[in-house]
Amino acid sequence: MNIFRLTGDLSHLAAIIILLLKIWKTRSCAGISGKSQILFAIVFTTRYLDLLSSFISLYNTSMKVIYIGCAYATVYLIYMKFRATYDGNHDSFRVEFLVVPVGGLAVLINHDFSFLEILWTFSIYLESVAILPQLFMISKTGEAETITTHYLFCLGLYRALYIVNWIWRYYFEAFFDLIAIVAGVVQTILYCDFFYLYVTKVLKGKKLSLPA
């Protein structure tokens, strides 16, 4: 464990908590893509099946349980409890265009052709594109609540910090996992234009609104 990975995990946890609290406190999921949240729940489920079979550390296990719990709680709030506030018309990204190619790629390119390893690879590839429905929804509505932009910033920052963690592990532990690195770089690149808007607008106190 290194400071970059720990900060990354805490940034990821912050993002998950921010979103859950935003929906719970405002009793509304306006502007939130339910599809992205379903994809994240799938990412955590397929990646953390090893919860049942292997124990790495208390930190590792507890974080996995928290991530899975929060992900399903968020999906529940969006599609059940506050479904009246769910903006289905703008959450129209065709996720099958993500899940099918990612599933195929996971079967073709992986470290080991075993059930758990292919699911892990699927989860890594899926996570790199899981935010697309959310970014697509913001581009359609042309704006995002400030709290949502903080959620997205923490979420994007987490994988950017993981890239630094992988650089660190390469030099100090001679460890690298090319599948995670390539997917992580793609994932972080997808946030770049959002990062630009976040820094130039939200941090200056303006509302995030895209040129319509």
Binding site: D50, S54, I56, N60, Y67, H111, Y162, N165, D177
Partner: peptide, 10 residues
């Protein structure tokens, strides 16, 4: 048997 990855990252 080939060493299978023990993924220690979240």
């Amino acid at each position: 048997r080939e060493f299978v990855f023990q993924h220690d990252e979240l």
